[in-house]
Design a protein around this nucleic acid. Structure first.
Length: 167
DNA sequence: CCCTGATTCGC
DNA sequence: GCGAATCAGG
């Protein structure tokens, strides 16, 4: 770029209009670096820089000018792959989530006893809670679970079936 | 990846 | 002096 008085005047004019350096460069057919470089040498009023330069002490840090080493991505440490989270099987809520068990009234309707504490009996609810005929299953529970085999199958949902996204 | 302006430094 | 390269924030 030949910086004669005319081109300098045009640069000053465009700079005073508040055009961006790239836009000035486009109109003058030069690069924005040429514009900003010349503007600096002309001591034109600086634009509000988008960069915070306060934290960069150019004076105090005389960097070795020769080798401009591009920082490669390969130098960054690889992130360790996250192990798969263990699948936790949770028993279904007692009443709310489970489908209402079909009430088949036993002939021995005399059994109105609730499971005692510590008894290995199934506590699957039968009937509407709060009503007179509400009771628990009271069949023998298995494996330390609170339900019998039949109701444990209803209460414990397989983890695969609980997923919400079809992979 | 686009934009911005500022700075550095080989030429 | 010039301006590409580079930096650095939006």
């Amino acid at each position: 770029m030949d910086w004669n008085s005319e081109s300098i005047d045009r640069l000053r004019a465009l700079w005073a209009e508040g055009l961006s350096t790239a836009e000035i460069g486009r109109r003058m057919g030069i690069s924005k670096n040429a514009v900003v470089g010349k503007a600096h040498r002309l001591n034109l009023p600086a634009r509000p820089s988008p960069i915070r330069r306060e934290a960069v002490p150019r004076v105090a840090v005389p960097r070795p000018a020769a080798p401009r080493i591009p920082l490669g991505r390969e130098a960054l440490p690889r992130e360790t792959p996250r192990p798969a989270a263990p699948v936790i099987r949770r028993p279904a809520p007692m009443v709310a989530a489970a489908p209402a068990p079909v009430v088949t009234p036993q002939p021995t309707a005399v059994v109105r006893s609730f499971p005692r504490a510590g008894a290995r009996t199934c506590c699957w609810p039968i009937g509407e809670p709060g009503t007179a005929d509400f009771r628990f299953c009271t069949a023998e529970s298995l494996g330390g679970k609170p339900y019998c085999a039949e109701h444990a199958a209803l209460a414990y949902v397989k983890a695969r079936d609980r997923r919400e996204d079809a992979a």
